[in-house]
Simulated assay, not measured.
Amino acid sequence: MTQRNAIFPANRHALYEAHGYSAAVRSGDLLFVSGQVGSRQDGSPEPDFALQVALAFQNLEAVLTAAGASFDDVIDVTTFHTDPDTQFGAIMPVKDKYFSAAPHPTWTAVGVNWLAGFDFEIKVIARLPEAA
């Protein structure tokens, strides 16, 4: 059985501890990152949607960094949206900032009706660099 190697970013444990899950798990050269939301340090949702999306990407970046990876190492993205029709205008500029160069990772966007008080969530799978 492969041992789970949990990864946590510094100063981001409120939601992980409250709900009992890891920010990411390394398995071999793959990193499986839990869904990241636009939460503040205390775990509460950022009420402004554009800022919530920006925070979700910043929180994702913190997890990737803690694992020795970056957005360049991301190979698969899944995002969850409470109102995709109206939200993509705010999401795409943030997405383009972090995934600016081709080839882009695969991407699946899923419309949902509940995200525990949040309106956007992003989870990824990354291949870790050999040095990690």
Rank of each mutant, 00 (worst) to 15 (best):
W107V: 13
G89S: 08
F8W: 07
L115I: 06
N5Y: 00
T65K: 15
E61K: 13
N59R: 10
V74Y: 07
F32K: 08
E121C: 15
G20M: 03
D119L: 05
L64R: 08
T65S: 11
Q41P: 11
E130L: 07
Y98T: 04
A109S: 04
D72Q: 13
F118I: 15
V25H: 11
H104G: 05
E17M: 13
K123S: 11
I91N: 01
A102I: 13
L31D: 02
L31C: 08
G20A: 13
I7T: 03
Y16C: 15
M92Q: 12
V25D: 02
N59Y: 09
Y16S: 07
H81T: 14
G117Y: 00
V124M: 08
D83L: 02
V94Y: 00
Q52A: 15
A126R: 12
P103C: 02
M92C: 08
L51K: 15
L31V: 07
E121Q: 09
V112L: 01
A18E: 02
I75R: 12
M92N: 12
P105Q: 01
T86V: 11
A131M: 11
A54E: 14
F8A: 14
F88S: 01
S100K: 15
M92R: 13
V33G: 06
Q41I: 14
Q52D: 05
G35F: 12
P129E: 13
A24T: 08
K123P: 00
V33M: 04
G38M: 04
G20C: 02
F88C: 11
F49L: 13
L128E: 03
A102K: 10
F49T: 12
L128M: 11
I91F: 07
R127F: 07
D29H: 12
V112D: 03
D42N: 14
E121R: 05
V77F: 05
G35S: 14
D48E: 07
Y21D: 02
V94E: 06
V124S: 01
N11L: 03
Q36R: 09
P105Y: 06
D72A: 15
S34H: 12
V33K: 06
A132E: 02
S34R: 08
N5A: 13
A6T: 12
L60I: 11
D73T: 10
I75V: 14
V63F: 04
V53W: 00
Y98D: 01
L128W: 10
F118R: 08
V74E: 01
H19R: 12
L51P: 01
R40L: 10
A56E: 04
T106K: 05
A56P: 01
L128T: 04
V124D: 01
P103V: 04
V74A: 10
L128Y: 09
D72S: 15
A101W: 03
Q3L: 08
P9M: 10
H104N: 02
G111T: 13
A50S: 15
I122Y: 00
A90C: 09
P84W: 00
S34V: 07
M92G: 08
T106P: 02
F88E: 02
F8V: 06
H13V: 11
T2K: 12
K97C: 10
A126D: 06
F71T: 06
K97D: 01
L128H: 08
A18F: 02
N59K: 05
S22G: 05
V63C: 09
T82G: 02
N59P: 00
T82Q: 07
P45K: 10
A66S: 05
L64I: 14
M1Q: 07
A10P: 13
Q58V: 07
A14I: 11
